[in-house]
């Protein structure tokens, strides 16, 4: 937690005053070459990067959770196996491949990146939402029905709050994958911090690679941490922390 705040402070300072960090980056720049990326402001690229992720993640979250709610309602049993099969299949798709396949369909720029992020982001959210709804004990659902909660009340007062931690874990995963894929999106001319890294590789300016790479990594770590805090908050009091290893 403290480390994350420190990382956030350093990242913020770098974005606000990149010039102050020039001496640190100088050894990595080619002699006489530019030290700081000069074709766009780093803060602007970082903002555009995060905006792209947010714009893709919001619809995938709504659709992913909505689909999970739909297939877990009574009477939708037939859809569930197909949904699971599609999810399993989808998870073997490399995000880069999804991005690449979106290019012929949607052209260049932010749109193919947005669509790729949206489509790929759906899967972890849908799957974790399914797991979340599945984790609500049968006895709790039966009790809710038996007490006379309407289906709506059951969903909003019981199932969603109990599924929320797992849904947020899925969002966390989607957000981190999206941030990463968005960086590769710079190869299809989406404006993100990936642009700085690619420019650095192309002209062999390691100072560019370093500032772009560290900023992207810092954003990813901070996003991961932020969603982790949210998921912990949503956990019912007393339940044990993170699932998985």
């Amino acid at each position: 937690m403290k480390a994350s705040l420190g990382l956030a402070a350093v990242t913020g300072a770098f974005l606000a005053m990149p010039g102050a960090f020039e001496p640190l980056l100088r050894p990595f720049a080619p002699p006489g070459g530019p030290i700081l990326y000069d074709r766009a402001s780093l803060a602007g690229l970082a903002a555009a990067h995060l905006l792209l992720v947010a714009a893709a993640l919001l619809p995938s979250a709504l659709l992913g959770v909505g689909l999970a709610i739909w297939v877990t309602r009574p009477g939708q049993g037939r859809v569930l196996p197909l949904a699971r099969a599609v999810v399993t299949f989808g998870q073997t798709l490399p995000p880069v491949a999804v991005l690449a396949i979106c290019v012929p369909i949607f052209g260049f720029g932010a749109l193919p990146a947005l669509m790729a992020l949206f489509l790929y982001g759906l899967l972890p959210i849908f799957e974790s939402a399914l797991a979340g709804f599945g984790s609500v004990p049968v006895s709790v659902r039966t009790a809710a029905d038996g007490m006379g909660l309407t289906p709506r009340q059951r969903l909003f007062r019981v199932e969603l709050p109990l599924a929320a931690p797992l849904i947020l874990e899925g969002l966390r995963l989607s957000a981190v994958i999206s941030l990463s894929t968005a960086a590769i999106g710079s190869t299809v001319a989406a404006r993100t911090l990936g642009e700085v890294i690619i420019a650095g590789i192309n002209v062999m300016n390691l100072a560019f690679v370093l500032q772009g790479g560290l900023l992207t990594a810092a954003l990813a770590l901070l996003l991961h941490e932020a969603f982790g805090v949210l998921a912990d908050r949503a956990r019912p009091p007393g339940s044990t922390a993170h699932p998985g290893p």
């Binding site: 006895s139 709790v140 039966t142 009790a143 809710a144 038996g146 006379g148 709050p161 109990l162 339940s239």
Partner: peptide, 16 residues
């Protein structure tokens, strides 16, 4: 259902 009390084996208490 609200007029009938219902008790089940695993108690079904809402954990949150």
């Amino acid at each position: 259902r609200r007029s009938i009390g219902y008790v089940i084996q695993d108690n079904g208490l809402f954990p949150h």
